[in-house]
């Protein structure tokens, strides 16, 4: 664990878990409406982590993965991403387009924009839910898409996070649709300043 990582107390962590839980619930509803399939979300894990450790947190670090990344603006800025293994991405494409590319080289403009839209809807639903709960303006910025090794995608995001503000908290959850064997991994890394504003808007004690 990073020596200078700020410690959050149990109340703050559990409050954040609860907010994230509601946020991912909204995101699951949005994706279910988009695809007409039932989606489940696991209870989000909120972890105080060293940023550099994030790329190796996902199981199959070298597996071909589709990642949608959105920088987050507003009072709780940060970095948000939605990642799915290639096989799951193909399931999403089949659900939404009727067919899926067989390899990354076959991803055209249509396939790319569908994926960007999936990420957009998931992330925006999550952010809107959080924004409403704490009464702070939070906006997602246009999404970026990568089709790459999971670790390479997460590294690129961590790198962006490093250039903004030091913070050490990640919210992860799994989104899955059993029927279609599609699952994704959702990650939100708020900035330290953003977290402080979030906690104070909820009347929670300052970070010690």
């Amino acid at each position: 664990m990073d020596g200078n990582a700020p410690e959050f107390n149990a109340i703050q962590i559990s409050c954040l878990s609860e907010m994230a839980n509601i946020g991912v619930g909204h995101a699951a509803t949005a994706i279910a409406q988009m695809t007409n399939k039932p989606f489940q979300m696991s209870v989000p894990t909120v972890r105080s982590v060293e940023l550099e450790a994030i790329p190796l947190m996902v199981g199959a670090v070298e597996e071909l993965t589709v990642g949608i990344y959105m920088p987050v603006d507003g009072d709780v800025p940060g970095h948000m991403a939605f990642l799915f293994p290639w096989r799951s991405a193909q399931a999403f494409w089949r659900l939404l387009l009727g067919q899926a590319p067989e390899s990354p080289e076959q991803i055209g403009e249509l396939e790319a924009s569908v994926m960007l839209e999936v990420g957009n809807i998931m992330n925006s639903s999550f952010l809107n839910a959080i924004s409403e709960m704490c009464g702070l303006p939070i906006q997602a910025t246009p999404p970026l898409l990568a089709v790459e090794m999971a670790a390479a995608i997460l590294q690129a995001i961590v790198l962006e996070a490093t250039t903004t503000d030091s913070h050490a908290l990640s919210i992860e959850t799994k989104v899955s649709c059993e029927e279609e064997q599609a699952e994704g991994y959702f990650l939100f890394i708020p900035t330290l300043g953003g977290l402080k504003r979030l906690f104070s808007s909820l009347g929670l004690p300052e970070v010690a």
Binding site: A112, L116, P142, L144, A146, A152
Partner: peptide, 17 residues
């Protein structure tokens, strides 16, 4: 030194780190 995020508006140049 790759640019991994290569789809999406504004991806070019933005993440050229």
């Amino acid at each position: 030194g790759a640019q991994v995020f290569n789809f999406g508006t504004g991806s070019a140049g933005k993440l050229d780190i």
